Amino acid sequence: MHAGDQVDEGVPAELAAFLRNAFLRNGVDGCLVKIVPSVCGGCGGRVFSVLVDDVEGGAERVCAGCGSRAFIADSEEFWEDADPGEACCPCGSEEFETAVAFSLTGDGSVRWVTVGLRCQKDGAVGVYADWKIDYGPTDHLLTMV
């Protein structure tokens, strides 16, 4: 992890490390990263099924506990044109802990959104969607996980 990175409480350590390393693999080094867990606003649940559009980028999560739906970051703005599919672990499970990593510029603006999932069945972690943010201001995105 980068010295200035922020990982909020509730993000599994292996998922946080995987998300940070995803930025390094994609050549986005030197950026600060904020990693936030997804928590259902309805029931406080932390396990979700997730619809992702891995072509354009975007994700919507559905709480396994209460069925509440929420878009991640600015996904709703582009969802009408999206072609989402259900995220699925290679083991076949479709239930995940979800965390979102935000790559930040020097002034704190969000430049990349990366959705990481940790399978509830076998613990496998992966990046299921990511997309670039090319507008501002972006502060509101940090709470939309």
Rank of each mutant, 00 (worst) to 15 (best):
D130C: 09
E95F: 05
S103H: 07
G92Y: 14
L32Q: 04
Q120H: 11
E80Y: 06
D53Q: 11
W131N: 14
E76A: 07
I35E: 05
E56M: 01
L15R: 00
R20E: 15
Y135Q: 06
G27A: 15
G126M: 01
G108N: 14
G44H: 07
V50S: 01
E80G: 08
K34S: 12
E9Q: 09
A59Q: 01
D122S: 14
D54V: 10
D139S: 14
Y135K: 06
A17M: 04
L19V: 13
G92E: 07
D74V: 11
E14V: 08
G108Y: 15
D74P: 12
S49M: 01
G30L: 15
C119G: 04
V33Q: 15
T143M: 07
V39K: 06
L19K: 05
N26S: 14
L19N: 02
T143F: 15
M144D: 11
L15G: 01
N21W: 13
E86G: 00
D107E: 10
L32N: 04
S68M: 10
V110I: 09
M1T: 00
V115M: 02
E95T: 00
V62E: 00
E77C: 00
V127W: 13
V52C: 10
C43I: 13
V62W: 05
V113T: 02
M144R: 05
D130M: 03
S68V: 07
C91G: 09
P90S: 12
G67M: 04
V115P: 03
A82N: 07
